[in-house]
Design a protein around this nucleic acid. Structure first.
Length: 113
DNA sequence: CTAATGACATTTG
DNA sequence: ACAAATGCCATTA
């Protein structure tokens, strides 16, 4: 396995995010001490834990790294390797209310700093 | 080492 | 408010 330090940091922080809460790529990168919001998203895309690929099922792998709990700073769900609708579905399953593909950060945004 | 990529963010139209 | 353009930064080829 390659070091990929940055990615592993992202995963570690992501694991700290409690269920029913979401974080933004920006906050995540900031917590890492960088502004590489893009790199964070890139890390998830290539994420070794896979992007679930199953909706409304039993996302066991998501327990390792809840990639679906990462959203845009604007409150938009953002993207997902398996498909945005899948991500939304997963979030709803986590007691997160998603309206029009947007999330109420005022309620569900969990910040590290 | 240099170039290209992208699950974003911010500013402008 | 929405859409397009520009900027950022680590990873990968």
């Amino acid at each position: 396995m390659k070091p990929k330090n940055f990615n592993e940091r992202c995963y570690s922080l992501l694991k700290k995010v409690p269920k029913g809460k979401v974080t933004t790529y920006k906050s995540l990168a900031k917590a890492l001490g960088s502004k590489a919001y893009r790199t964070v998203g890139n890390a998830m895309n290539k994420n070794p834990y896979g992007a679930l690929g199953r909706a409304g099922g039993s996302p066991q792998k998501s327990e390792l790294v809840p990639c679906h709990r990462v959203v845009c700073s604007d409150g938009k769900v953002g993207g997902f390797a398996a498909g945005t609708p899948i991500k939304i579905k997963l979030l709803k399953s986590e007691d997160v209310d998603v309206l029009n593909g947007k999330i109420n950060l005022k309620k569900y945004l969990f910040k590290f700093n």
